[in-house]
């Protein structure tokens, strides 16, 4: 037991290197996912049908195929089409696009759940369509977006491990190497499972704080 602990402490610095890359992947992916969620979620509500159609195609393709297949496609196929891409870039892009396709539906649903009266009041006060969205509708919709977005971000974190399969030296990849060198599976994978769990808890905590922040003053019961 004590010997195991010593072993874990010894490998922690190496695991930490991998964790740094995992965190970069996660943050980069989350950033792209937020951008794509809003772009495609709002685009799907557009009256301009080519834009709407494009957004629906993006959402369906990325929700309908496997994240790992998407990663392999970006990493192995794109160079054939003349685009060179590193494993890290492929990771961030696929994580972001994949999570964004789920997030788009969250954004769309939240925007549509804002009561119609809010749009009407915004028209009566002569706000422009962009002001209506940005000042009135989105700030109210954000509160109901946050919990499902938290779930999506945790799925994104879990998917960062897939980047190990395209040889990116993130946490799972590093752990796999240590395991192959030492054959101490339980300690190595047990440790990184706990690390992933801890990062997931951090994401949950941040999302809770965000939810509290955005819902100040809002009475979710009697919202008008």
């Amino acid at each position: 037991m004590l010997e195991s602990l010593e072993f874990i402490v010894r490998i922690l610095p190496v695991l930490f290197q991998g964790l740094l890359i995992t965190i970069q992947l996660t943050l980069g992916g989350i950033f792209l996912a937020i951008v794509m969620s809003f772009a495609a979620g709002l685009g799907k509500l557009s009256k301009f049908f080519p834009l709407r159609w494009l957004c629906i195609a993006y959402i369906e393709v990325f929700r309908g195929t496997s994240a790992l297949v998407q990663l392999f496609w970006f990493y192995y196929v794109l160079p054939f089409l003349g685009m060179d891409i590193t494993a890290f870039q492929a990771g961030v892009i696929v994580l972001g696009l994949n999570a964004g396709s789920y997030g788009a539906e969250v954004v769309r649903g939240a925007i549509q759940s804002v009561p119609k009266g809010q749009y009407e009041a915004a028209i009566a006060l002569n706000f422009t369509p962009l002001q209506r969205l940005w000042r009135i509708i989105i700030p109210q919709a954000v509160v109901s977006m946050i919990p499902p977005m938290g779930t999506i971000f945790i799925e994104l974190l879990k998917n960062t491990a897939l980047a190990a399969l395209v040889t990116l030296g993130e946490l799972t990849f590093v752990a796999r190497q240590i395991r192959d060198d030492t054959l101490r599976t339980t300690e190595v994978f047990g440790t990184i499972l706990i690390i992933y769990f801890a990062v997931a808890l951090c994401i949950t905590a941040v999302m809770r704080t965000g939810e509290w922040w955005f819902s100040r003053g809002l009475d979710r019961g009697g919202i008008r």
Binding site: I154, L157, K158, N159, T160, A161, L162, A164, L165, T172, A175, F189, I192, L193, Y196, F197, A200, L201
Partner: peptide, 8 residues
């Protein structure tokens, strides 16, 4: 639910 399937 919070940890990667690949690691499991």
């Amino acid at each position: 639910r919070s940890t990667p399937l690949l690691v499991q």
